[in-house]
């Protein structure tokens, strides 16, 4: 079947086979490689996207269910250049292997969009579904706290 939705602001038509996940369709059909596949079961958050305004794991979304929806991947979180979160993560060295980074940028961008001055606890809760296997949480939290504190 063909599924039509808006991806980072543009309408796309994607070929979807049976129960394919939205993650597979984004990567394999639409060449959107920001969302990563790691655990395939919603534990790690590296495939995080924004679906109709909410951060979800794209590996757990039935692609057929994306019909008519609005999807934002890490490629679409900033308009030309990097956003404040990405700048802060660069500055603080909040990236090691980088595999979790797109998911963290998506989850954090959404947090700041709705909540411009989150506390440390709120930052940690918002990122509870994003695992950094390099355990680089210290730098990630520092980067996000600097955005919350208005240093960016």
């Amino acid at each position: 079947m063909i599924v039509t939705f808006r991806l980072n602001g543009e309408q796309v038509n994607a070929r979807v086979a049976g129960p394919a996940s939205l993650l597979d369709v984004l990567r394999d059909e639409l060449g959107m490689y920001g969302p990563k596949e790691a655990c395939s079961q919603g534990e790690c958050g590296s495939c995080s996207i924004v679906l109709d305004g909410e951060v979800v794991c794209s590996c757990l979304v039935l692609a057929a269910d994306a019909e008519g929806s609005e999807v934002t991947t890490v490629e679409g979180v900033s308009q030309g250049g990097l956003n404040a979160i990405q700048e802060a993560m660069l500055r603080e060295g909040a990236v090691q292997c980088g595999f979790c980074t797109p998911g963290i940028v998506v989850a954090a961008s959404k947090l700041f969009e709705t909540h411009p001055r989150p506390t440390r606890i709120e930052i940690k809760e918002a990122l509870a579904g994003n695992i950094c296997r390099c355990t680089g949480y210290g730098a990630i939290i520092r980067a996000l706290e600097s955005v919350a504190g208005g240093e960016a």
């Binding site: 049976g18 129960p19 996940s21 079961q41 590996c59 757990l60 979304v61 039935l62 057929a64 019909e67």
Partner: peptide, 20 residues
């Protein structure tokens, strides 16, 4: 979805309920 991702299940027909 997890069962599909792990290849344990491959249903030919799926019904999306998200927009009901």
């Amino acid at each position: 979805m997890v069962e599909v991702n792990f290849g344990r299940r491959r249903p030919e027909t799926v019904v999306g309920l998200r927009r009901v």
